[in-house]
């Protein structure tokens, strides 16, 4: 989303000297929290949170850094879950091979969908991805291997590398945490690479990027496939965590949910989608026992975010006086 005018760099706020060390300490503190969390909180909930956090971060790679709003990311998330679940359960693959198949499948889907969708820009791009993912939803509803409304159930978690038993919840948690950290690292490397810089240039001024000789559609497609593959990573792992893959993960509501997580946390920040995912998953868990529909709250939060704080929670913090003194900048 280009032409964002409400994040001016305010002069007069200087970054404090210890800012870099404070940021590092903060990150290490977060990591320590994630390491001890499964001994205090319900591990399945934490794993769900990590999967959605990676999903949202992968989605943000496209929205925040390339400026493309995809309304069809559920296809990659739910599609990968199906691929992984099928490979592990029916073909007896090891979990790491199953997840790799999920990633490859999501990347392949991303290549096809992306190649069609990048023919139009902006709003059209969003509508086309939405329509294509709805098509994939109907495919999953009718295809044999997905088992329609039942989904693929009781998927075995298996032995990681033939050694580590993932049926053990704590083993599984640290596996998911490892995948999550690797995924975030890949995203961080990707957006700070020369490729990522060109993506930002395209986002800011597509015409100028074209006139500079960059093959814009190839870069867009590259970012789309990358985002789809990382989304597939999250989806494949989620299938192993919950040991099932269902239609829920390929619905357009799921595509909307990941947009909300990213928007709520902060578009174009690395941590924002993680925070947004944490809040949304926690809220859903909290409301799961009541009969109050989550969609009302989701919808209202959406409207409030769009109307009054488009920078998201993390983005607002970055833009605050304290955030600027710590040298934090958002990519918006």
């Amino acid at each position: 989303m280009a032409h964002h005018s409400d994040t001016p760099a305010v002069p007069g706020v200087s970054v404090i000297p210890a800012a870099a060390s404070i940021r590092v300490i903060f990150l290490l503190g977060l990591l320590a929290l994630l390491l001890v969390a499964p001994f205090f909180l319900y591990p399945i909930f934490l794993m769900k949170l990590l999967c959605f956090a990676l999903f949202a971060a992968a989605f943000n790679l496209l929205l925040g850094y390339t400026g493309l709003l995809s309304f069809g990311h559920a296809s990659f998330f739910g599609g990968a879950a199906y691929f992984t679940a099928h490979a592990v359960k029916v073909w007896g693959w090891t979990p790491e091979a199953g997840i790799l198949l999920g990633v490859a499948g999501a990347a392949g889907l991303g290549l096809v969908m992306g190649a069609i969708a990048i023919r139009r820009q902006g709003i059209y791009f969003a509508m086309i991805t939405l329509a294509l993912s709805q098509m994939f939803f109907f495919f999953c509803l009718q295809a044999g291997f997905t088992h329609g409304e039942d989904g693929i159930q009781s998927v075995p978690r298996g032995q990681l590398f033939g050694m580590i038993n993932l049926s053990n919840t704590i083993n599984m948690y640290f596996f998911v945490l490892g995948v999550f950290l690797i995924g975030l690292f890949i995203i961080w490397r990707f957006v700070n690479s020369p490729f990522g810089m060109i993506l930002r240039a395209i986002r800011e001024n597509e015409q100028r990027a074209i006139s500079l000789g960059y093959s814009v559609s190839r870069y867009k497609l590259g970012a789309f496939v990358m985002s789809a593959a990382l989304t597939g990573l999250a989806g494949g792992v989620k299938a192993l965590v919950f040991q099932f893959a269902t239609l829920t993960d390929v619905t357009w509501q799921m595509s909307g949910e990941v947009i909300l997580m990213t928007l709520l946390g902060g578009i174009g920040t690395l941590i924002g989608p993680v925070v947004g995912a944490g809040l949304v998953v926690t809220l859903q868990n909290y409301l799961a026992t009541s009969n109050f529909p989550v969609t009302i709250i989701t919808g209202v939060v959406f409207m409030v975010c769009v109307l009054v704080f488009r920078r998201g929670l993390v983005g607002e913090f970055y833009a605050s006086r304290l955030g600027r003194r710590l040298g934090l900048t958002s990519e918006r």
Binding site: M1, L69, G122, I123, A126, G256, I259, L263, T295, I296, T298, G299, V300, V301, F302, M303, C305, V306, L307, R310
Partner: peptide, 14 residues
């Protein structure tokens, strides 16, 4: 313009 799409999406859900 994408914000208009997102806003009306939220409205529809609500």
């Amino acid at each position: 313009h994408l914000y208009g799409l997102l806003f009306t999406f939220g409205l529809a859900l609500t």
